[in-house]
Design a protein around this nucleic acid. Structure first.
Lengths: 221, 221
DNA sequence: GTCTATATTTAGATAGAC
DNA sequence: GTCTATCTAAATATAGAC
């Protein structure tokens, strides 16, 4: 028994706190969430949160970190699968690899999706830094792949189209229920594959359009 | 002099408070913004905020209300202009009417845009209610117009495509600087018309794709 | 209508027993 | 490692002079 391994009880407490924090942060946002709320949700003393994560800030970062690794690792695996299948130029498949791990109920869950949606809309402060730290690498990777897949292979146009696509994705991840309300659908009427496919087709068409247009109008900005 | 008209001084104070609140709410988000901060930014006593707006909640709603009216009124005017010009089926022009008032520096300003971006990513609570109150009518209006403009005129498909488009729009309104970073551009290098046109083309292509696809796969969900 | 001063509540964080 | 109890700072909101 090495001492690097925490006790089973401590490990379980950490996980329970992370789950509770994810839930509370998703529901109320970072600033409006209280450490007392999180402690109550987790069923532990408030002091336990500070013992394991030091501060509210530290707890928040760990909540984000836990999910990000899983999502981006799934994205990279999916991309590698495409290369192995010689489908590197299949834009719809590329977007599927980008969106599916983020929308999937398994990888992260809807609570983390809501946290990410809030992070993405921030224009300054901690959330901007977290987006950069956890998502810029994967973004550059996908932009490069998209630029190679779609003629005339304009990397800058691909970057803008990528940003629009992430915007559309994030708006769907948050699950505000607004899309269904506007479409006159029951909140859970549309199944996952259908939603994913619709979003993929929307973005693929937009990406092709922007990349062609950008080339037509010249490289100057 | 009727007493319904407030004094010039009071009217100016109200406006200064609204401007300051808009700035602070945009920078820190609702929960992390303090009434003391806002009072300091406006150069008035904190008590003055409560005198004019009663509570933090009331102040926030007035901040949102002030800009929303201007934006949506500009959108409706632009749509009417299209009808008058017999361009009701010009999808790019319709999207221009939808996006321009929201992205324009005059109508609202970048601070309000950031507040709206935060509101749009909320999945429960006050912000969801505000989005519904201030933006559902105009959304239904534009969805109807889009459905009429694009064959095969599927209203439900138009609603989903509208949601994606708003997601892409909002991600750009927040001006996080991330798009420019990913595209390797200086933050203020790209001019307004160029950005607007690129976003319009992206969404127009996506909308056409989704509406055709939806019709091909049948009406069943 | 605007101010200073303060009441009241709640936040994040810590001390110390077990 | 987990708890109870508490500290200190900061929040919203209010009272009352001018």
């Amino acid at each position: 028994m090495l001492e690097v391994a925490p006790t089973d009880q401590a490990s379980d407490t950490r996980r329970r706190i992370l789950d509770a924090a994810e839930q509370i942060f998703a529901d109320f946002g970072y600033a409006a969430s209280g450490m007392k709320m999180i402690a109550a949700e987790a069923g532990v003393a408030q002091a336990s949160l500070h013992y394991h994560f030091e501060s509210k800030e530290g707890l928040y970062e760990k909540v984000v970190e836990r999910r990000t690794a899983a999502i981006n690792s799934a994205r990279r695996s999916a991309l590698e699968g495409l290369v192995a299948q010689d489908r590197s130029n299949d834009l719809e498949a590329i977007l599927d690899a980008l969106f599916r791990p983020a929308l999937s109920p398994e990888a992260g869950g809807v609570n983390y999706a809501r946290i990410l949606a809030a992070m993405s809309s921030a224009s300054k402060g901690r959330d901007v830094e977290l987006v950069r730290r956890y998502y810029d690498d994967i973004a550059h990777h996908f932009i490069e792949v998209m630029a190679r897949a779609v003629p005339p292979h304009d990397r800058r146009a691909a970057a803008w189209a990528y940003s629009y696509s992430i915007g559309a994705l994030v708006s769907q991840m948050a699950h505000t229920g607004r899309s269904e309300r506007l479409a006159n659908e029951a909140p859970e009427q549309s199944d996952f594959e259908k939603r994913l496919r619709r979003l993929v087709r929307f973005c693929a068409a937009g990406i092709r359009e922007v990349m062609v247009e950008e080339a037509e109008s010249g490289a100057a900005n």
